[in-house]
């Protein structure tokens, strides 16, 4: 890493590794939350609020995944986020079929990452 001596780089690496562990540990909760929101997507009374919450959580995931060494998960999260922006800007009733598909793909990736550890 530029601009750092080896000892500081090692300290940073160790710090990032600790943050990565906590990130991995947080994945199960994130998966559980997404699963609950998937159920809410099925109900027309809650689908819009569920979409917005999925977007908010996907946005956070998109922001952190790359730094934690999970670029594919980050990319899937970004796709969820972007697609929901399109859906929300579109007509009502919302068509959330593809949100469901994208989110399931993201959940698969998250589960594989948890299993991989």
């Amino acid at each position: 890493m530029q601009g750092m001596d080896a000892s500081k780089a090692a300290v940073l690496e160790a710090g990032i590794a600790r943050i990565r562990e906590r990130f991995i540990a947080s994945l199960e909760d994130r998966i559980e939350s997404f699963c609950g929101l998937l159920e809410q997507l099925e109900d027309s009374a809650t689908e819009e609020s569920a979409c917005l919450e999925i977007r908010a959580q996907a946005h956070k995931l998109h922001g952190i995944c790359g730094s934690m060494g999970y670029p594919r998960m980050g990319s899937l999260a970004a796709q969820v986020e972007q697609h929901i922006d399109t859906v929300i800007a579109g007509p009502r009733p919302l068509n959330t079929d593809f949100v469901d598909e994208l989110l399931n793909a993201l959940l698969d990736e998250m589960e594989q990452s948890v299993d991989g550890t």
């Binding site: 890493m1 500081k8 710090g15 990032i16 906590r22 990130f23 922001g63 952190i64």
Partner: peptide, 12 residues
């Protein structure tokens, strides 16, 4: 987690 990454990177 982002706050911690920022803090660790800046400090280093």
């Amino acid at each position: 987690l982002i706050r911690e990454i920022l803090s660790a990177t800046l400090e280093a």
